[in-house]
Amino acid sequence: MIKPKDLHGGRFLWGAHHPHCERHRHHLIWIGHHPFCLGCTAMLVGLLLGAIWFAFFSPPSFTLAGWVLFHFFLLIPTVLQPFLQMKTFKILSRTSLGFCVASFFLTGFFSLQQPISPVLFHIFQITSFFLVYRVLSGLRSMKIDNPCAGCPHGNYPVCDWNLPRLLETTEQKEIFTNFKRADCRKPL
């Protein structure tokens, strides 16, 4: 009976969420010598900006329609981003998304004059958040960007680019030392 073993060198660097190779450059942002996931980092920046905006810059008192429109406006870059795979636009869209999420909850909970009872309004608010999340995730999965697809070096983690990391242990060295791209099959 063969038991699965942990693949040494198969994990991403901390916080990177992607291989840090050249083909994934538009998914990464380098801080010093360490790569971080561009989407998650930009979204975190957006969340912080939204929280700072709310805490220190007294957001306008929205009507319900104005509040809904304001947050839909902030979501526009996220809707367009799967179709515009550019690094700068991705930074903008994820920052805008983070700002939108922070503002949506903070203004919705603490500064919006709610036209219905607060409990009903918060149920509506949380339900609509998850509905929009599902719609946007669905849209993103329709146009997913996978830099490993069609890569001449193969699919991470068993690819030529990652080979030096796979060869770091003696046992894996014996197996992967003669690795050839042609010997790796990825089932459909």
């Binding site: 063969i2 942990d6 693949l7 198969g10």
Partner: peptide, 24 residues
């Protein structure tokens, strides 16, 4: 013949993770 099986779990965006199985 199947000689080794390796697996790895990689952290992904929004706290999710992805698994990969390598059959040798």
């Amino acid at each position: 013949t199947l000689e080794h099986v390796y697996q790895t779990t990689t952290a992904s965006c929004l706290g999710q993770s992805k698994r990969v199985l390598v059959m040798v």
